[in-house]
Simulated scan of single mutants.
Amino acid sequence: MIMSKKQINIFLWIFIFFIASLLFYYFMVYNRNSSVDNKNINYVRAKVLEVISSDLTEEGNISGVYIGTQELKIEILSGKFKGQKLILTNSRLHGDLVYDVVAEDGMEIVLAVKEREGQPPSFGVDTYARDKVLYILIFLFIFVLIGVGRIKGLMALISLIITGLLIAFFMLPLMFRGYSPILLAIITASIVIFLSLMLIGGFNKKSLAAIIGTSAGVVIAGIISLISGKMAHLTGITGEASEQLIYIVSSFPINIKGIMFAGIIISSLGAVMDVGMSIASVVFEIHNRSPELSRAELFKSGMNVGKDIMGTMANTLILAFTGASLSIMILLMAYNMPYFRAINLNTVSTEIIQGLSGSIGLILTVPITSIVSALFISNSSRKNFNND
C-alpha cells in the first residue's frame, strides 16, 4: 500500500523530531557522571560447556532453590576474551530465587569480567542470558503487528519506537539530573499522544479531537494521583528498586516521590489513548454515515459507545496494577494481616491510588473526547464533510 502525502509529511516531521532529540541528548544529557563505579566491569555472553561438579543442597520447600557451588567449564562468546575457555566456580547460589544461577550443560549465561591494572582479569557468573528469548518475542510481535495491521501496523510500530526513545533518551536522563518527574512525564505523554495518534489516524480533526481528549485524561490521572498521594502521605517507595534509589540520592538530585506519579501517567497512557481514538473514530464515523445528526446527538452516540468501552478498559488498568502487586497480596494473606492494617500500608495504598487514578482519567476521557469531537464538526461540514 502506497503512503499518502500526509503520511509522508508526518514521517518528515518525525525524522526532524528524531534528529532534534539526538542533538538534545548529546549536548544536554550524554555527558552526565555516575556515582556507581562500573568502569572496570564488563558483561559478556558465555556458554556452559560442562558442569564438572555440583555441590548443591535444595533449600526449604521451594522447588529450584539451591545453596552451594558448581564447578563449570565455559567458553566466552563475546567481548575481548571471545573464544577463551576456562574453568570457574559458580558461587552465585545462596538460596535466592531471584538472583541465583543454576548452570546446566549447553546453557548460555552472563559473565561479569573485572579488569584491574597490573592484575589478571577475574570472572564471575552474573545471571542467565535471556536476551535471545526477548529478541524472538520482539520479532514475533513486529511480525504479527505488521502482518495484521499492514500500514496501520507499521505506523503503530513507529509510534512505539518513538515512545521508547522518548522515555529512554529524554524522560529518564532528565529525571536523573533532578528535573521534575511529573512535568517530564506530562511532556513525554503529550509528545507520544500527538505523534502516535497523528501517525495512526492521520492529520485531521478526528486525530486532533482524540489528542485533546487523551491529553486531558492523562493530565487528570496525574493530578488526581498527585493530590491523593500527598493527602495519603505516600513515600513513592514501593519495591526493592525504589529502595535502592535512596542510596544514590546523595549523589544525584532524584525526586523519588515524583517518580511514582510519573509512572502512573505513563502506565495509563496506552489505555487512555485507545479510548480517546476509539471515541473520536466512532463520532466521526457516525457523522459520515448520518450527517444530519446534531452535535448533541453525536455527543450522545459517543457517550453510549464509551460506556461500553470504559468498563473493559478500566478493568484493564485495575487488573494490570493488581497483577503487578499479586505477590504483595499473597504475602498479606500469608501473615493474616487485618484489613485496617493492610489498607493503610504504603505499598497497598500506592497500588490502589495508581489503579484508581488511571481509571478515573480513562473514564473522563470518554465525555471529553465525545464533546470535543462533536464540537469539531462544524455546521457547514454537516452538509458535505468528508473525514479522511
Rank of each mutant, 00 (worst) to 15 (best):
N38V: 06
K39V: 10
K39L: 07
N40L: 09
N40M: 09
N40I: 07
Y43T: 06
V44D: 09
R45G: 07
V48P: 11
V48Q: 06
V48G: 08
V48R: 07
V51R: 09
V51E: 04
S54T: 06
S54H: 03
D55Q: 05
L56C: 11
E58M: 09
E59A: 06
E59S: 08
G60F: 00
N61H: 05
S63Y: 09
S63A: 15
V65D: 02
V65E: 00
V65Q: 01
G68H: 04
G68C: 09
T69G: 00
Q70W: 00
Q70F: 05
E71K: 15
E71Y: 09
I74F: 04
I76S: 00
I76H: 06
L77T: 05
L77E: 06
S78P: 01
G79Q: 03
G79H: 06
K80E: 07
F81Y: 14
F81W: 08
F81P: 00
Q84L: 07
Q84A: 04
Q84I: 06
K85W: 06
K85I: 03
I87E: 02
L88M: 02
T89I: 14
S91Q: 12
R92G: 01
R92Y: 03
R92Q: 13
H94K: 13
D96T: 08
L97F: 11
Y99V: 12
V101I: 07
E104V: 08
D105N: 15
V110G: 03
L111T: 07
V113D: 13
K114P: 11
E115T: 12
E115F: 05
E115N: 10
E115C: 09
Q119S: 13
P121M: 10
P121F: 14
S122C: 03
F123E: 02
F123A: 03
V125A: 03
D126Q: 15
A129L: 14
A129P: 05
A129C: 08
R130N: 09
R130C: 09
D131K: 10
K132R: 13
L134S: 11
L134W: 11
Y135W: 13
Y135M: 08
